[in-house]
């Protein structure tokens, strides 16, 4: 079978276009979306810590987190209908469910009523999971986890008065823009 150079170029261009479209379909859901949605949740939550009373901030966190969980589950369900990864999908879902349960247990057992400390505890716990998932699934996720943990600990120790603002803009921002960058990169 012989074809001309121009035909070969056309075929390669077709392959490139289709593969880009497929990667875009993957990028349009999954990890980038979760990072962006949780970046926004953190931004709202930590800003409420800074500017609202502890009781109201706790309520804002609860509502924002519930919205994040629901949005993540809906997106995950929609994604699994078109692209599935047998074995991995169920394990990742169960992993996050276990994280949620253990996160609540950790907060409850700590007995702390300091909203900022509780928020940071959950943040650091979430970043620990990012590091684990990053090591197994996608390495940059682990670096995001290390970066946000370092920012959280440094802000808590060195700039306690600004910790919520720092976590809102740098922590939430890191998640949001990592998601945005991942989405752009995969396109």
């Amino acid at each position: 079978m012989e074809i001309s150079k121009n035909e070969a170029q056309d075929y390669l261009e077709t392959i490139r276009t289709v593969q880009q479209k497929t990667r875009r379909a993957i990028a349009n859901g999954g990890a980038p979306f979760y990072l962006m949605i949780w970046g926004v949740v953190w931004l709202i939550g930590f800003l409420s810590n800074q500017y609202l009373s502890a009781q109201v901030a706790g309520q804002v966190w609860a509502v924002a987190s519930a919205a994040g969980v629901i949005a993540s589950f809906v997106k995950g369900w929609m994604m699994s209908r078109s692209i599935r990864r047998p074995g991995l999908d169920a394990r990742v879902g169960l992993f996050w469910l276990a994280w949620l349960v253990y996160g609540f247990l950790l907060v409850w057992l700590s007995g702390s009523s300091n909203v900022t400390a509780i928020s940071l505890m959950i943040t650091v716990f979430a970043m620990f999971v990012y590091i684990i998932m990053g090591l197994w699934l996608w390495r940059p996720l682990a670096w995001i986890g290390v970066f946000v943990t370092a920012v959280a600990v440094a802000a808590y120790l060195l700039l306690p008065n600004y910790v919520n603002l720092i976590m809102a803009w740098i922590g939430g921002g890191a998640l949001f823009f990592s998601g945005l960058d991942m989405r752009r990169h995969w396109r």
Binding site: V18, Q19, R85
Partner: peptide, 11 residues
Amino acid sequence: AALSALPEDAQ
């Protein structure tokens, strides 16, 4: 082209 662009364990 489309199927090869997926991760190896994806369907």
